[in-house]
């Protein structure tokens, strides 16, 4: 079987397993999975820039928020329906990531981290500043009646689960395909040795900008999905912790792997859940991870066992 087919088969198996989960798992866990899948999309978007291209952003909450408020404000204030709302969220994220990419990519390394952090902070503060529209920290809620797409009520738990799964699968397959294209391979080359990639004739700046835009738009999709499926938008989602979470999920699950972001999100979610919100446990796990499994869960699996893992 060719490498590509194996990858798609693995992803298809993953999706199938998630379908089965809905019917097999108790309601509580199935509900969690819907939330986890939405945030896994965010993590997958982040992974594209960090895991594959090697650019560490500390400001992805800006893109998540752009999607969230793009959809949220369009529906809440503009009165549009879910379909155009999703479009609004995506366009908002696309534009914001384009602008941030254009400016921030003039820097590298730590300066890049701080610049992205600053843009995200400015975004968070802007949400607070325009509180008359965004309701700031308190946020706003989308009425259940509006959260329907093509006649399907998305506030219903089953519909919500499968909507999240649909989006998750779409992004998973997209990334699985992308990382095996010449473009995707070049991103890895940039991560591994940027100067060598440049001197092979690749336009590094253009590749990085495309990576930022794709990464930002996928993150925005997650934000829009969250707002649509769970019905709320709050300033907290644009604050610094929400920029750190995807980094954490990706590092935990395995950076530069397609399924790592999902594994990391799942792991972190249940770690916090089981420790009763006691972040100290999470803290110790992270330190242990850094010491003993630096490539993340799937990263270590790929290193030691399944070398073809995408």
């Amino acid at each position: 079987m060719s490498e590509i087919s194996r990858i798609h088969l693995l992803h298809a198996a993953m999706v199938a397993a998630l379908v089965i989960c809905w019917f097999v798992l108790p309601v509580y866990h199935a509900g969690n999975l819907a939330r986890i899948m939405v945030f896994a999309i965010y993590a997958m978007g982040y992974n594209l820039l960090f895991g594959y291209t090697g650019l560490l952003s500390l400001g992805h909450a800006l893109f998540f928020g752009a999607g969230m408020y793009g959809l949220g404000l369009a529906m809440h204030l503009g009165g549009v329906s879910a379909g155009p709302g999703i479009l609004a969220g995506l366009i908002a994220a696309l534009v914001v990531s384009g602008i941030v990419g254009f400016l921030a990519l003039r820097t590298t390394g730590v300066a890049f981290m701080i610049v992205t952090l600053m843009f995200a902070q400015a975004g968070y503060l802007a949400v607070l500043l325009f509180g008359t529209y965004t309701r700031g920290d308190e946020g706003f809620v989308l009425p259940q009646a509006t959260r329907a797409l093509l006649g399907v009520d998305l506030s219903d738990a089953q519909n919500r689960y499968f909507a999240a799964l649909l989006l998750f699968s779409a992004v998973l397959f997209f990334i699985g395909w992308l990382v095996r294209t010449p473009f995707g391979r070049c991103l890895v080359a940039i991560r591994e040795n940027e100067e060598r990639a440049r001197m092979l004739g690749y336009d590094i700046t253009r590749h990085k900008l495309m990576a930022v835009i794709m990464s930002g738009t996928i993150s925005g999709l997650s934000g829009a999905a969250y707002c649509l499926l769970f019905g709320s938008a709050q300033a907290a989602f644009v604050a610094v912790p929400y920029s750190i979470f995807p980094l954490l999920y990706v590092l935990l699950g395995g950076m530069g792997t397609t399924l790592g972001p999902f594994v990391g999100t799942l792991f972190m979610f249940y770690l916090i859940d089981w420790s009763g919100g006691n972040m100290m446990v999470a803290g110790f796990v992270l330190v242990a991870l850094a010491l003993f499994a630096p490539a993340g869960i799937l990263g270590e699996v790929r290193r030691r066992l399944i070398t073809w893992l995408p």
Binding site: R185, C186, M199
Partner: peptide
């Protein structure tokens, strides 16, 4: 084509992939 003064390849990638990256462009 350009080779660096201090050899610069993609150390963590297989030899095949190193060449493939040059070819794919």
């Amino acid at each position: 084509a350009y080779t660096f003064q201090i050899t610069s390849v993609f150390a963590k990638l297989p030899v095949r992939e190193n060449v493939a990256l040059a070819v794919r462009r």
